[in-house]
């Protein structure tokens, strides 16, 4: 009796890397194949299309894109000269709201959604352990961050190449780089943008371990996002700004300077790592000891 009980556990432990990969793969498949996720990705893909068509229509009579004083979203005025800039403009437009919103939905749903659907206990029956399940959920959320960013970037690249000329890129410092390097930097920017969401994803996961229902967790996560972004715009609070997770989000644009200005990008990544460590461990502390009732 006892031998029979022990045997599968041992087998599971000895195959642990495969096991992790197994639950990760199934988790990724469930997350990405969910209708809700696909709808979110569809909305993200539509944003660059909208921007591209709007700029194209506005500039068809030769007038410059955006307000004459250079207001509006970053990089919008350069889009007509070079379709590649649509990638940067689209990421600059989606990063403050759309991207974190979708990440908030996925991260907030990660644990709380399973709990409210009553499937969390079945997941925990599998001999994977709570810590590993949490890590898998977090990894799946991060994979979604990267996927979402790439969806925006690829859609923007396609629309930009279709509607506008693509050629040598003039960096925001005024120097020129070739198309190949421009594409390389666009890829680097997409990865940086995805990495900018690491901290927020951890925060969302933590909230997800607190809430009882998926909807509540999503709403709370998005609420925190909006609150923090408002705090980030109040000049009287400038003392706390460097510690707010969205504060350095736009630093991805520094990759378009020549030479690249790394200071703020490094600060951004460090801050995201810090948020991931604090809220990741908080999520673990909560989830590993939580009573699973549903």
């Amino acid at each position: 009796m006892s031998q029979a009980e022990v045997a599968p556990v041992r087998a599971g432990r000895s195959r642990s890397p495969l096991w992790t990969f197994g639950i990760l793969r199934s988790e990724l498949a469930t997350t990405l194949r969910r209708g809700r996720t696909l709808a979110l990705l569809g909305v993200l893909a539509a944003v660059p299309v909208l921007i591209g068509i709007a700029v194209r229509i506005q500039t068809s009579d030769g007038s410059p894109a955006g307000p004459p004083d250079g207001g509006g979203p970053a990089f919008l005025s350069q889009v007509t000269n070079n379709g590649l800039f649509l990638v940067f403009a689209a990421l600059a437009v989606t990063l403050p709201v759309f991207l974190p919103l979708t990440v908030g939905v996925v991260a907030g749903d990660a644990i709380a959604g399973e709990a409210s659907a009553g499937t969390l206990r079945y997941l925990l029956v599998a001999p994977a352990g709570r810590t590993r399940l949490l890590l898998t959920k977090y990894t799946a959320t991060l994979a979604f961050c990267l996927t979402a960013t790439l969806v925006v970037a690829v859609s923007a690249l396609a629309v930009g190449a279709l509607l506008f000329p693509v050629g040598e890129v003039t960096t925001i410092s005024g120097t020129r780089i070739g198309v190949g390097e421009g594409l390389l930097r666009a890829g680097l920017i997409a990865v940086t943008v995805a990495a900018s969401l690491i901290g927020f994803a951890a925060l969302g996961l933590f909230i997800s371990t607190l809430a009882g229902s998926g909807i509540a967790a999503m709403a709370a996560t998005v609420g925190v996002l909006i609150t923090v972004q408002i705090l980030d715009t109040i000049p009287q609070l400038s003392g706390i700004h460097p510690y707010l997770f969205p504060h350095y989000w736009l630093s991805f644009a520094d990759l378009l300077r020549d030479p690249v200005y790394w200071d703020e990008i490094v600060k951004n990544l460090g801050l995201q790592g810090l948020y991931a460590a604090v809220f990741g461990s908080a999520a673990w502390a909560r989830f590993a000891a939580k009573d699973i009732t549903a």
Binding site: G70, A74, S77
Partner: peptide, 23 residues
Amino acid sequence: SAAEYSVIRNGDQLWAYDSKSDE
């Protein structure tokens, strides 16, 4: 923020480029 204003002097050429308004 996400823009740069550059003044470039090269010999007798003086350029200024504002990436925000692309002027």
